[in-house]
Amino acid sequence: MKIQKLLYIDRRIIYLLVAIGALIPIIRPIGLPVVPSAPVQGLFERVEELEPGDAVMLSFDYGPSSEPELNPMSAAIMRHLFMREVRVMVVAIFPLGGVQIAIREVARITSEFDLEYGVDYVNLGYKDGGQAPMKAMGVSIQDVFPADVETTPTEGMPIVEDVRNYGDIEVVITLATGIIGEWWANLVNAQFGVDVAVGCTAVSAPKYYAYLRSGQMIQRGLQ
């Protein structure tokens, strides 16, 4: 059978074909359309409902390996939030690189707007422990983050004084790799009743459909 010969193709030829397929649109972009899906539109509308001065928590829960997928999402969501004059608290729960990406991306996007650090936004940095800081922020965000990412005490920062816990937050948006998006949904949404939106990598997308359908998430990624 001729078709069975396909089984014996050297895997390196397949790698080469995949590499060519991936390289062509980078060398010469082919301009494929980007059409927002219904869940993405849902998050857009949720952000549109926010009033100026409302608070949103944005969690950078991914490392360098997920940057190609999640950086465009973080830029789009930050621009939208700042355009709506929403106050943004940035945190990072993923240990390997999340906080570095947050520092770089937050600096890049905030430079496009006229914003005051500590008033309109704050980068609280990374906290170890996964679910432990997530749960503790339900009581006091300042207790979990006594200092921001630059080790400046958060005491006295208007945004941290005003936004004490999840009760003062309208939406938690996580850009998540692996299981962290799930934690935000089944811990923070389920136990504290805050809207949770997850921008996830494609690997995690199928399992998040269940959370999206059950109303535990309002978004599952910018598709």
């Binding site: 799930e182 934690w183 949904a185 089944n186 811990l187 389920a190 136990q191």
Partner: peptide, 9 residues
Amino acid sequence: QKLHGDILF
């Protein structure tokens, strides 16, 4: 977390 977030929902 599992009870609240996964099983019940």
